[in-house]
Design a protein around this nucleic acid. Structure first.
Length: 318
DNA sequence: AAACAGGTGCTAA
DNA sequence: TTAGCACCTGTT
Protein backbone atom coordinates (compact mmCIF):
# COMPACT_ATOMS: atom_id res chain seq x y z
CA UNK A 1 0.00 0.00 0.00
CA UNK A 2 1.10 3.59 -0.54
CA UNK A 3 3.16 4.86 2.35
CA UNK A 4 1.48 8.22 2.64
CA UNK A 5 -0.99 10.08 0.50
CA UNK A 6 -1.64 13.78 0.89
CA UNK A 7 -5.23 14.35 -0.05
CA UNK A 8 -4.84 18.11 -0.48
CA UNK A 9 -2.44 17.71 -3.37
CA UNK A 10 -3.83 14.50 -4.85
CA UNK A 11 -4.72 14.85 -8.52
CA UNK A 12 -6.43 12.40 -10.82
CA UNK A 13 -6.57 12.30 -14.60
CA UNK A 14 -8.53 10.27 -17.11
CA UNK A 15 -6.32 9.67 -20.12
CA UNK A 16 -7.20 8.24 -23.52
CA UNK A 17 -4.30 6.28 -25.03
CA UNK A 18 -6.05 6.07 -28.39
CA UNK A 19 -5.70 2.29 -28.39
CA UNK A 20 -6.05 -0.69 -26.08
CA UNK A 21 -3.94 -1.29 -22.98
CA UNK A 22 -3.89 -4.19 -20.52
CA UNK A 23 -2.14 -3.10 -17.34
CA UNK A 24 -1.67 -6.58 -15.96
CA UNK A 25 -0.06 -7.87 -19.16
CA UNK A 26 2.01 -4.71 -19.55
CA UNK A 27 3.26 -4.27 -15.99
CA UNK A 28 3.57 -7.92 -14.91
CA UNK A 29 5.23 -9.37 -18.00
CA UNK A 30 8.63 -8.60 -16.51
CA UNK A 31 9.73 -5.64 -18.61
CA UNK A 32 9.59 -3.25 -15.62
CA UNK A 33 10.34 -4.01 -11.99
CA UNK A 34 8.76 -1.30 -9.87
CA UNK A 35 5.00 -1.67 -10.37
CA UNK A 36 2.87 -3.45 -7.82
CA UNK A 37 -0.81 -4.13 -7.71
CA UNK A 38 -2.77 -2.06 -5.20
CA UNK A 39 -6.35 -2.29 -4.08
CA UNK A 40 -8.52 0.81 -4.21
CA UNK A 41 -11.02 0.53 -1.37
CA UNK A 42 -14.62 1.10 -2.36
CA UNK A 43 -13.94 1.25 -6.09
CA UNK A 44 -15.46 -1.84 -7.62
CA UNK A 45 -15.43 -0.19 -11.02
CA UNK A 46 -11.62 -0.33 -11.07
CA UNK A 47 -10.56 -3.69 -12.50
CA UNK A 48 -6.88 -3.29 -11.74
CA UNK A 49 -4.58 -0.58 -10.48
CA UNK A 50 -0.84 -0.41 -9.98
CA UNK A 51 1.47 1.84 -7.99
CA UNK A 52 4.85 2.64 -9.46
CA UNK A 53 7.36 5.29 -10.43
CA UNK A 54 7.82 6.52 -13.98
CA UNK A 55 9.77 9.17 -15.84
CA UNK A 56 8.24 12.64 -15.86
CA UNK A 57 9.20 14.66 -18.91
CA UNK A 58 10.66 17.99 -17.85
CA UNK A 59 8.30 20.89 -18.36
CA UNK A 60 9.55 23.01 -21.22
CA UNK A 61 12.19 25.53 -20.24
CA UNK A 62 12.63 24.19 -16.72
CA UNK A 63 14.78 21.75 -14.90
CA UNK A 64 12.70 19.59 -12.63
CA UNK A 65 12.31 16.24 -10.99
CA UNK A 66 12.43 13.60 -13.64
CA UNK A 67 10.27 10.94 -12.00
CA UNK A 68 6.85 10.76 -10.40
CA UNK A 69 4.94 8.15 -8.45
CA UNK A 70 1.57 7.29 -9.92
CA UNK A 71 -1.34 4.96 -9.32
CA UNK A 72 -2.55 3.82 -12.72
CA UNK A 73 -5.87 2.02 -13.07
CA UNK A 74 -8.42 0.85 -15.60
CA UNK A 75 -12.10 -0.15 -15.45
CA UNK A 76 -11.72 -3.42 -17.32
CA UNK A 77 -8.99 -5.89 -18.24
CA UNK A 78 -8.41 -4.11 -21.54
CA UNK A 79 -9.44 -0.48 -22.10
CA UNK A 80 -8.36 2.54 -24.11
CA UNK A 81 -8.45 4.80 -21.07
CA UNK A 82 -6.39 4.94 -17.90
CA UNK A 83 -7.10 6.67 -14.62
CA UNK A 84 -3.96 8.19 -13.17
CA UNK A 85 -3.54 9.51 -9.64
CA UNK A 86 -0.44 11.41 -8.51
CA UNK A 87 0.72 13.84 -5.85
CA UNK A 88 1.04 17.28 -7.40
CA UNK A 89 2.56 18.57 -4.17
CA UNK A 90 5.76 16.62 -4.66
CA UNK A 91 6.60 18.36 -7.90
CA UNK A 92 6.31 22.06 -8.39
CA UNK A 93 6.17 21.57 -12.14
CA UNK A 94 4.01 18.46 -12.41
CA UNK A 95 1.16 20.03 -14.31
CA UNK A 96 -1.69 17.79 -15.47
CA UNK A 97 -0.50 18.31 -19.01
CA UNK A 98 3.02 17.19 -18.16
CA UNK A 99 1.74 14.05 -16.43
CA UNK A 100 -0.52 13.26 -19.35
CA UNK A 101 2.37 13.63 -21.80
CA UNK A 102 4.51 11.41 -19.59
CA UNK A 103 1.83 8.71 -19.49
CA UNK A 104 1.29 8.79 -23.24
CA UNK A 105 5.00 8.40 -23.81
CA UNK A 106 5.60 5.77 -21.10
CA UNK A 107 2.80 3.56 -22.42
CA UNK A 108 3.82 4.12 -26.06
CA UNK A 109 0.48 5.56 -27.06
CA UNK A 110 1.88 6.02 -30.54
CA UNK A 111 2.14 2.28 -31.14
CA UNK A 112 -0.71 1.10 -33.35
CA UNK A 113 -1.58 -1.87 -31.17
CA UNK A 114 -4.50 -3.25 -33.20
CA UNK A 115 -2.26 -3.38 -36.27
CA UNK A 116 0.63 -4.90 -34.32
CA UNK A 117 -1.60 -7.54 -32.75
CA UNK A 118 -3.18 -8.37 -36.10
CA UNK A 119 0.17 -8.74 -37.86
CA UNK A 120 1.69 -10.90 -35.17
CA UNK A 121 -1.37 -13.12 -34.72
CA UNK A 122 -1.43 -13.59 -38.48
CA UNK A 123 2.20 -14.63 -38.67
CA UNK A 124 1.62 -18.30 -37.82
CA UNK A 125 -0.54 -20.59 -35.63
CA UNK A 126 1.84 -20.33 -32.68
CA UNK A 127 1.60 -16.58 -32.56
CA UNK A 128 -2.16 -16.75 -33.04
CA UNK A 129 -2.31 -18.78 -29.82
CA UNK A 130 -0.25 -16.21 -27.92
CA UNK A 131 -2.61 -13.39 -28.81
CA UNK A 132 -5.34 -13.74 -26.14
CA UNK A 133 -3.22 -13.47 -22.98
CA UNK A 134 -1.10 -10.73 -24.55
CA UNK A 135 -4.01 -8.60 -25.75
CA UNK A 136 -3.32 -5.01 -24.73
CA UNK A 137 0.30 -5.65 -23.75
CA UNK A 138 2.36 -2.56 -24.51
CA UNK A 139 6.10 -2.24 -24.64
CA UNK A 140 6.94 0.66 -22.35
CA UNK A 141 9.40 3.49 -22.87
CA UNK A 142 11.40 3.25 -19.69
CA UNK A 143 14.14 5.55 -18.48
CA UNK A 144 17.38 4.29 -20.10
CA UNK A 145 19.54 4.48 -16.97
CA UNK A 146 17.03 2.76 -14.72
CA UNK A 147 16.41 0.13 -17.37
CA UNK A 148 20.12 -0.51 -17.87
CA UNK A 149 20.79 -0.79 -14.15
CA UNK A 150 17.76 -3.04 -13.60
CA UNK A 151 18.76 -5.48 -16.31
CA UNK A 152 22.35 -5.61 -15.11
CA UNK A 153 20.85 -6.63 -11.78
CA UNK A 154 18.71 -9.25 -13.52
CA UNK A 155 21.70 -11.40 -14.47
CA UNK A 156 21.25 -14.93 -13.12
CA UNK A 157 18.66 -13.56 -10.73
CA UNK A 158 14.94 -13.90 -10.13
CA UNK A 159 12.32 -11.23 -10.66
CA UNK A 160 11.27 -10.66 -7.02
CA UNK A 161 14.90 -10.28 -6.00
CA UNK A 162 15.62 -7.83 -8.80
CA UNK A 163 12.71 -5.73 -7.58
CA UNK A 164 14.02 -5.81 -4.03
CA UNK A 165 17.42 -4.51 -5.04
CA UNK A 166 15.93 -1.76 -7.20
CA UNK A 167 13.65 -0.70 -4.32
CA UNK A 168 16.60 -0.66 -1.95
CA UNK A 169 18.61 1.62 -4.25
CA UNK A 170 15.63 3.95 -4.64
CA UNK A 171 14.74 4.04 -0.96
CA UNK A 172 18.25 4.89 0.20
CA UNK A 173 19.42 7.18 -2.59
CA UNK A 174 16.41 8.36 -4.55
CA UNK A 175 14.44 11.55 -4.09
CA UNK A 176 10.82 11.61 -2.92
CA UNK A 177 8.42 11.44 -5.86
CA UNK A 178 5.08 11.28 -4.06
CA UNK A 179 3.00 8.62 -2.31
CA UNK A 180 5.97 7.85 -0.07
CA UNK A 181 7.89 6.46 -3.03
CA UNK A 182 11.40 7.29 -4.17
CA UNK A 183 12.82 7.81 -7.61
CA UNK A 184 15.56 5.66 -9.06
CA UNK A 185 18.92 7.28 -8.20
CA UNK A 186 21.09 8.89 -10.85
CA UNK A 187 24.28 7.16 -11.99
CA UNK A 188 26.30 9.97 -10.39
CA UNK A 189 24.69 9.26 -7.04
CA UNK A 190 25.23 5.51 -7.28
CA UNK A 191 28.83 6.04 -8.41
CA UNK A 192 29.84 7.99 -5.31
CA UNK A 193 28.62 5.45 -2.75
CA UNK A 194 30.97 3.55 -0.46
CA UNK A 195 31.69 -0.05 -1.44
CA UNK A 196 29.64 -1.24 1.51
CA UNK A 197 26.47 0.29 0.14
CA UNK A 198 26.11 -2.05 -2.80
CA UNK A 199 26.85 -4.98 -0.54
CA UNK A 200 23.97 -3.94 1.70
CA UNK A 201 21.75 -3.73 -1.34
CA UNK A 202 22.30 -7.48 -1.83
CA UNK A 203 23.22 -7.21 -5.45
CA UNK A 204 25.97 -9.77 -4.87
CA UNK A 205 28.51 -10.37 -7.65
CA UNK A 206 26.62 -7.85 -9.81
CA UNK A 207 28.02 -4.98 -7.74
CA UNK A 208 31.08 -4.62 -9.95
CA UNK A 209 28.90 -4.69 -13.06
CA UNK A 210 26.65 -1.95 -11.70
CA UNK A 211 29.74 0.02 -10.72
CA UNK A 212 31.19 -0.28 -14.21
CA UNK A 213 27.86 0.85 -15.68
CA UNK A 214 27.76 3.93 -13.45
CA UNK A 215 31.35 4.83 -14.30
CA UNK A 216 30.95 4.48 -18.05
CA UNK A 217 27.66 6.39 -18.05
CA UNK A 218 28.97 9.18 -15.81
CA UNK A 219 32.18 9.55 -17.83
CA UNK A 220 30.24 9.65 -21.06
CA UNK A 221 32.05 6.63 -22.45
CA UNK A 222 28.53 5.28 -22.83
CA UNK A 223 26.38 8.33 -23.57
CA UNK A 224 22.80 7.22 -22.91
CA UNK A 225 21.32 10.27 -24.61
CA UNK A 226 23.43 9.75 -27.72
CA UNK A 227 22.38 6.10 -27.99
CA UNK A 228 18.92 7.34 -28.90
CA UNK A 229 20.26 8.77 -32.16
CA UNK A 230 22.36 5.77 -33.11
CA UNK A 231 21.51 2.84 -35.35
CA UNK A 232 20.47 -0.13 -33.24
CA UNK A 233 23.56 -2.22 -33.96
CA UNK A 234 25.89 0.61 -33.02
CA UNK A 235 23.96 1.34 -29.82
CA UNK A 236 24.10 -2.37 -28.97
CA UNK A 237 27.85 -2.48 -29.44
CA UNK A 238 28.20 0.61 -27.26
CA UNK A 239 26.07 -0.83 -24.43
CA UNK A 240 28.08 -4.06 -24.49
CA UNK A 241 31.25 -2.17 -23.61
CA UNK A 242 29.93 -2.22 -20.06
CA UNK A 243 31.04 -5.24 -18.04
CA UNK A 244 27.95 -7.22 -17.23
CA UNK A 245 26.12 -6.11 -20.35
CA UNK A 246 25.96 -8.98 -22.79
CA UNK A 247 23.60 -9.56 -25.74
CA UNK A 248 20.52 -10.22 -23.61
CA UNK A 249 20.84 -7.21 -21.32
CA UNK A 250 21.72 -4.92 -24.22
CA UNK A 251 18.69 -6.09 -26.20
CA UNK A 252 16.36 -5.55 -23.23
CA UNK A 253 17.61 -1.98 -22.84
CA UNK A 254 17.24 -1.33 -26.57
CA UNK A 255 13.70 -2.68 -26.54
CA UNK A 256 12.34 -1.41 -23.24
CA UNK A 257 14.06 1.99 -23.05
CA UNK A 258 14.89 2.92 -26.65
CA UNK A 259 11.85 1.30 -28.20
CA UNK A 260 13.81 -0.54 -30.88
CA UNK A 261 10.92 -2.85 -31.72
CA UNK A 262 12.94 -5.01 -34.09
CA UNK A 263 15.21 -6.46 -31.38
CA UNK A 264 14.44 -9.89 -29.99
CA UNK A 265 15.95 -10.44 -26.53
CA UNK A 266 16.69 -14.10 -25.90
CA UNK A 267 16.67 -15.48 -22.36
CA UNK A 268 16.38 -19.13 -21.36
CA UNK A 269 12.57 -19.04 -21.65
CA UNK A 270 12.56 -17.59 -25.11
CA UNK A 271 15.29 -19.96 -26.24
CA UNK A 272 13.22 -22.91 -25.04
CA UNK A 273 10.09 -21.51 -26.68
CA UNK A 274 11.83 -20.98 -30.02
CA UNK A 275 13.25 -24.49 -29.86
CA UNK A 276 9.91 -26.02 -29.06
CA UNK A 277 7.66 -24.04 -31.38
CA UNK A 278 9.87 -23.39 -34.37
CA UNK A 279 12.98 -25.57 -34.35
CA UNK A 280 11.58 -29.03 -33.82
CA UNK A 281 12.69 -29.23 -30.20
CA UNK A 282 16.36 -29.19 -31.07
CA UNK A 283 18.49 -27.35 -28.52
CA UNK A 284 19.27 -23.86 -29.82
CA UNK A 285 21.93 -21.35 -28.93
CA UNK A 286 20.80 -17.83 -28.03
CA UNK A 287 22.40 -16.65 -31.26
CA UNK A 288 20.28 -18.99 -33.37
CA UNK A 289 17.11 -18.13 -31.43
CA UNK A 290 17.79 -14.44 -31.94
CA UNK A 291 18.33 -14.82 -35.69
CA UNK A 292 15.22 -16.94 -36.00
CA UNK A 293 13.15 -14.36 -34.13
CA UNK A 294 14.44 -11.55 -36.32
CA UNK A 295 13.85 -13.57 -39.47
CA UNK A 296 10.27 -14.49 -38.58
CA UNK A 297 9.02 -11.30 -36.99
CA UNK A 298 11.17 -8.53 -38.46
CA UNK A 299 10.20 -5.03 -37.39
CA UNK A 300 7.82 -6.37 -34.72
CA UNK A 301 10.20 -8.93 -33.19
CA UNK A 302 10.16 -7.14 -29.84
CA UNK A 303 6.40 -7.41 -29.50
CA UNK A 304 6.47 -11.00 -30.72
CA UNK A 305 9.05 -11.81 -28.05
CA UNK A 306 6.83 -10.33 -25.34
CA UNK A 307 3.81 -12.26 -26.61
CA UNK A 308 5.80 -15.49 -26.54
CA UNK A 309 7.03 -14.77 -23.04
CA UNK A 310 3.56 -13.85 -21.84
CA UNK A 311 2.20 -17.03 -23.43
CA UNK A 312 4.64 -19.51 -21.91
CA UNK A 313 4.49 -17.83 -18.50
CA UNK A 314 0.69 -17.72 -18.46
CA UNK A 315 0.57 -21.50 -18.23
CA UNK A 316 -1.60 -21.78 -21.33
CA UNK A 317 1.17 -23.09 -23.55
CA UNK A 318 0.21 -26.70 -22.81
C1' DA B 1 19.73 -30.16 1.20
C1' DA B 2 20.66 -29.10 -3.32
C1' DA B 3 19.25 -26.86 -7.17
C1' DC B 4 17.81 -23.08 -9.52
C1' DA B 5 16.91 -18.19 -10.99
C1' DG B 6 14.83 -13.59 -17.40
C1' DG B 7 23.47 -14.16 -18.17
C1' DT B 8 27.99 -12.90 -18.36
C1' DG B 9 33.14 -13.09 -18.19
C1' DC B 10 36.84 -15.97 -18.43
C1' DT B 11 39.41 -19.76 -20.10
C1' DA B 12 40.50 -23.45 -23.10
C1' DA B 13 39.99 -25.87 -27.39
C1' DT C 1 33.59 -19.21 -32.65
C1' DT C 2 31.99 -21.99 -29.07
C1' DA C 3 31.62 -25.06 -24.85
C1' DG C 4 32.15 -25.37 -19.85
C1' DC C 5 32.22 -23.29 -15.44
C1' DA C 6 31.80 -20.04 -11.36
C1' DC C 7 29.08 -16.63 -9.38
C1' DC C 8 25.91 -13.40 -4.60
C1' DT C 9 21.68 -14.19 -2.66
C1' DG C 10 17.08 -15.89 -1.68
C1' DT C 11 13.68 -19.43 -2.23
C1' DT C 12 11.81 -24.01 -2.64
Amino acid sequence: MPGSIRLDTLRTLDIDLGGPVNLEATLECGQAFRWRKVAIPGRRDVAASYLGVMPLLPASGRRGTRQIAAIVGQTDKVTDRLTVAYDAGSHGCASPGAVQEAILRYFSAGDDLPAIERDIAGADPVMAATAPPAHGLRILRQDPWECLASYVLSINNNIPNIGKIVEHLARYLGEPVGFGESGFPSPELVACQENGFLRESKCGFRDRYLKDATEKVVSGEVDLAALGDMPTEQARERLMRIRGVGPKVADCVLLFAYHRLDVFPVDVWIARAMSRFYLDGRPVTPKVAREEGARRFGALAGYAQEYLFCHIRSGLAG
